[in-house]
Amino acid sequence: MSRLFIDFAIQAYLAGAAVGIAAPLIGCFLVQRRLSLIGDATGHLAFAGVAIGVAVGVAPIWGALLTALVGAVALEWLRAKGRLAGDVSLALIFYLGLALGLVVLSAHGGLTASSTGVLFGSIFTITWLDVWTIALLCALVVGAVALFYKELVAVALDEETARASGLPVDSLNVLLVVLTALLVAAGMRVVGLLLVAALLVIPVAAGARLAHSFRSAMLWAIAAGLTSTLAGLVVALLQGTIAPGGTIVLAAATVFAVAAVVGRRAARRHPRSSAA
């Protein structure tokens, strides 16, 4: 039990909590707009950024952040132009990012055990500097969502009507993918670039089962994200050898299963009216 409260565990809780709160927050807008795969694609592209960072001697998180930002904005531009329709285009981007990262890393002798940490998380080896960097990135996400909440909701509910009523939809879409990129970079050390999209989606799916409004779904999703990251970390710390990135995502899946059962039972007990 004592290992739950040692220094690296506290650092992990803080970093995990920051991502556990911010990921579902931004995930609500992505899921509602059926853009969940943008998070996945950005994560894959960020791997290429980590590799390029290693090649030029830049810390992985900054390489990941830069590539995620450029990649996310490019993806949104392609989507807005209608050139990113269908799963084949996104699959191409996934594999391009991974392959590019693999080639660059191996060419520079960086394909070591630490690259597994980039892909699947390495939260127990983070420093206080990493914690503050992750907290800053997540604070930017939370702050931007708080500032532009009503505009982001209006676009998430109905993009066409939002555009017709004068909202700067294109700028808000770019803001959304930029925030996604920040979150992907923040989540790299927590659950890894391959699993970070899970925290954008699974807690949101859980929140949707328990709520009757967008705002309450968002609050439930944040609670689910926070619970999942902390529970996943505790399990990994107690067991001692398993990867925390995996336990966090499995904990999120468990929370989702519980939410699905609770939500279904609540719906049976209190059926909503749907009169004419």
Binding site: V31, Q32, A208, A211, F214, A217
Partner: peptide, 11 residues
Amino acid sequence: MATSLPVSVTE
């Protein structure tokens, strides 16, 4: 609108 997340009439 997508029906992925619940949305209240007020929202």
